[in-house]
Structures are given as structure tokens and as C-alpha cells.
Amino acid sequence: MKALVVEKAADRSLQDLNFAEVSVPTPVEHEALIKVYAAGLNPVNYKIVEGGVSAWRYPHILGLDVAGEIVGVGQGVRTWHVGD
């Protein structure tokens, strides 16, 4: 899948971001996997990139605002279902 990523901790501007091919994750307990149809890059995303986050592992995938369809759920997910 394609994702907008921060490659390394030293990348601190929007010009440093790249689209990269990454593995499709498997949802774990209490998570849902969403096939994203649309995503937005909002002010929170770029402010976080500029400030850096010590807890991130790199490459870090960006994106807080998405719209799509649930294609998988982890154990313990009861409210959401595949197809929602």
C-alpha cells in the first residue's frame, strides 16, 4: 500500500515527506484495518512533523483524517464490522 511517511527523525518539514510502498498491517486487539479512500493532511500533521515525536518508530506513517471501509478487525472489536 502507499503511505505518506516521515522517513527519519531528522525529517522536520513537509518537503521531507515521501510517498512510500509499505506493508499492509494486520489489526491487533481492539484495532480495525481501514481501506482508505480519502485522506487529509491537516495542520496537526505538519505541526507534529515539525516538532518531532520521540516515541515514533521510523519510517512513520502520517494521517489522522481518513475516510474508508473497514476490511479487518482485531479481537475485542465489537462495535465495528468488516464492511462498515
Rank of each mutant, 00 (worst) to 15 (best):
R57K: 12
W80Q: 03
P25H: 13
R12K: 10
P25M: 13
D84R: 01
Y46R: 08
V5I: 11
K2E: 15
H30D: 14
K2P: 04
Q75A: 12
H30P: 02
L33Y: 02
G74Q: 02
D16R: 08
V28T: 15
V24I: 11
E31G: 01
V66P: 01
K35T: 02
E31K: 06
V28K: 13
E7M: 06
D11C: 09
A55Y: 10
N45E: 14
V5F: 07
Y37F: 05
E7T: 07
N45M: 09
V36A: 06
L41T: 11
P27T: 11
L62I: 10
V36Y: 07
I34T: 01
A67L: 11
V71C: 02
D11N: 10
E69W: 06
E69P: 00
H60C: 07
E29R: 14
A3R: 03
W80R: 07
A67C: 12
S13H: 03
V22M: 13
I48V: 15
M1A: 14
E31T: 02
H30Y: 15
H81N: 11
Q75L: 09
V22S: 06
H60K: 15
K8C: 03
P25A: 03
N45A: 15
V24M: 07
Q75S: 12
L33N: 02
G40W: 06
S54P: 13
V77K: 09
D16E: 10
A55S: 15
W56C: 08
F19R: 09
R12G: 08
G63R: 10
S13L: 09
K35H: 11
L14A: 10
S54L: 07
K47A: 13
W56S: 12
L33T: 07
D84T: 05
E21G: 01
V44W: 15
G74V: 05
V22F: 01
V28E: 13
V77G: 00
T26K: 14
L14W: 07
Y58N: 05
V6C: 11
G83P: 04
H30W: 00
P25C: 00
I70W: 00
Q75Y: 10
V66T: 08
G40D: 06
A39S: 14
A39N: 08
D65W: 07
M1C: 14
A10W: 08
D65S: 05
N42R: 09
Y58S: 06
N42L: 04
I70A: 02
E7P: 09
A10G: 11
A10P: 04
H60P: 00
G63D: 03
K35E: 09
G51Y: 11
N18T: 12
V73N: 00
G63Y: 05
G68W: 14
E69H: 07
V36S: 04
A32G: 05
E69V: 06
Y58H: 10
E21Y: 03
G51I: 00
V44N: 06
I61R: 08
S13T: 14
G72F: 11
A3K: 02
L14R: 11
Q15D: 15
N45V: 11
N42F: 12
L41E: 04
A9N: 09
T26V: 14
G74A: 02
G51V: 01
V5P: 11
S23G: 04
V71W: 01
G76R: 03
P25E: 14
R78M: 04
A32H: 04
I48N: 09
V82I: 07
H60V: 05
V24E: 14
S54C: 06
N42P: 13
K8V: 03
K8N: 05
A3L: 08
S54Q: 12
D84K: 09
R12M: 07
